[in-house]
Design a binder for these strands. Structure first.
Length: 436
DNA sequence: TCTGGGGTCCTAGGACCC
DNA sequence: TCTGGGGTCCTAGGACCC
């Protein structure tokens, strides 16, 4: 079973997983929520995260709030507060980094740490080091964690999940197989629906069955690299390095939005895209990054994607420039008389602001001259709220409200009853075009 | 799978070159 | 311009994750 070693931890990898993270952060911040069933996701009408108390009532993720309120009127529903959640995430990373710099910020509620070789320094076993970090996380954050120790990331994930909430599980290399025996292959990290189906066809249904195949079998069945790595780690080996890059050096920015009902109207779809471009650019500015390429996509009602990739002659986070380019190529993906439900934009090849080089025709100069205007737009939007200043092209999208929001709006403003367009002024500004 | 939004990584295949 | 063989770079799209 072991690929190369009978030692317990040739590498010692920890995985930390915050229990019911969003709901736990809410409870940590507000003592009145502690010990009570709390559900986040109030703003979208479906449960995003549930406190342990809420889970005990039989509620699950994705459940509509309406149903939740009917089932359990005592449940406390709160809106998601992603700013708070990411502050807690950063605290979590910072605490783990006090023990080792080898930390991967995997997601808002999870991280990996490599503590190989640190036993001497802490005069403790790997398991004791793991429990020490776990204790400090829980005491400082007021949130419990599922923690796993294993020779690699794939098994550490299995370990941290093993005794949730609040558990610690150590799986040395020679004991890995006992955890794989009854584990469906689809539950292994990195094996999704389509790989699961492919493996089922090959007669593999449990993680152990996969792990005990030999290399000959992998070759014969053309198992791709990501799955060969998983296979190796399920045998106790080490294949997936930790990614140590700090989470705010991002590689790309994506903004997508689904609207209801789906539409055929070209102008409306383009306007949705325009709005996405604006918010993606605002995010890029917040990171002081500029894309050198973008791609946009449209998704039809039947979940068919059509995408278009475009290079920018000059790196820019100016939405007007990107919108012009996208508009020029829009009809490459937009097919008339098809219902669309989602648009999205990806800003790619991000480079630091200031790192942009001048091109032959001095275009970078023009882009830089517009920067103060964008900065002004950002601060206006910060001061007076999102969407105070927007591109005229995004107007249709911004005025369109989701059905349930619209209902709230009309009940609240039934006496006024102005068409939305008249509620805010539209003025002309040089550079930005029409803004309101 | 029954469908929200934000990301990363891998691979197959085409373009181009020697 | 058919023909080998081999290499690199790029992109579209798939698969997966939280």
């Amino acid at each position: 079973m072991q690929p190369f070693s009978i030692r317990s931890y040739p590498r010692a990898i920890l995985h930390f997983d915050g229990d019911s993270f969003f709901a736990s952060v809410e409870q940590a911040m507000n003592h009145r929520l502690r010990g009570k069933p709390v559900v986040t996701g109030g703003e979208r009408g479906a449960a995003t995260a549930l406190s342990i108390e809420a889970k005990r009532l039989g509620l699950t993720r994705g459940m509509p709030m309406k149903q939740i309120r009917e089932l359990c009127p005592e449940v406390i529903v709160v809106k998601s507060d992603y700013t708070a959640y990411s502050i807690y995430a950063r605290r979590m990373y910072a605490i783990v980094r006090r023990y080792t710099p080898m930390v991967e910020e995997y997601s808002i509620d999870e991280c990996f740490a490599d503590i190989t070789g640190l036993r001497g320094m802490y005069h403790r076993s790997y398991a004791q080091i793991g429990e020490m970090i776990k204790r400090e996380l829980e005491e400082s954050l007021g949130i419990t964690f599922g923690v796993g120790l294993a020779p690699n990331k794939v098994v550490a994930k299995i370990a941290s999940k093993h005794r949730k909430p609040g558990g610690f599980t150590a799986i040395p290399a020679k004991e890995v197989h006992t955890f794989l025996q009854n584990m469906p292959i689809g539950q292994v990290w990195g094996v999704g629906y389509s790989m699961q189906m492919a493996l089922h066809k090959l007669g593999v249904t449990t993680a152990l069955q996969f792990a005990t195949k030999d290399e000959q079998w992998l070759r014969a069945n053309k198992i791709a690299k990501p799955y060969r790595e998983i296979w190796w780690e399920l045998r106790g080996g080490f294949a997936k390095e930790l990614s140590l890059t700090h989470n705010d050096d991002i590689g790309s920015i994506i903004k997508t939005r689904t609207f209801a009902p789906p539409t055929r109207e070209r102008a409306f779809v383009l306007s949705q895209l325009s709005k996405n471009i604006e918010s993606a650019c605002a995010k890029a500015r917040g990171h002081h990054m500029r894309p050198r390429a973008v791609s946009f996509f449209l998704k039809t009602q039947d979940f068919i994607y059509r995408t278009c990739e475009l290079d920018l002659s000059v790196a820019t986070n100016d939405p007007a420039v990107i919108l012009r380019l996208v508009e020029a190529h829009f009809d490459r993906v937009f097919v008339p008389n098809i219902l669309y439900r989602t648009t999205g934009i990806t800003l790619r090849n991000l480079v630091e602001e200031g790192a942009a080089t001048l091109d032959l025709f001095g275009e970078a100069q023009v882009v830089n001259e517009r920067q103060p205007i964008l900065t002004a737009v950002d601060s206006l939007n910060k001061k007076y709220g999102k969407e105070t200043v927007i591109l005229a092209a995004s107007l249709k999208a911004v005025n369109h409200l989701e059905p349930n929001k619209q209902r709230n709006m009309t009940t609240r403003t039934s006496k006024v009853h102005l068409p939305l367009e008249q509620r805010k002024k539209t003025i002309d500004l040089p550079y930005l075009g029409r803004v309101r």
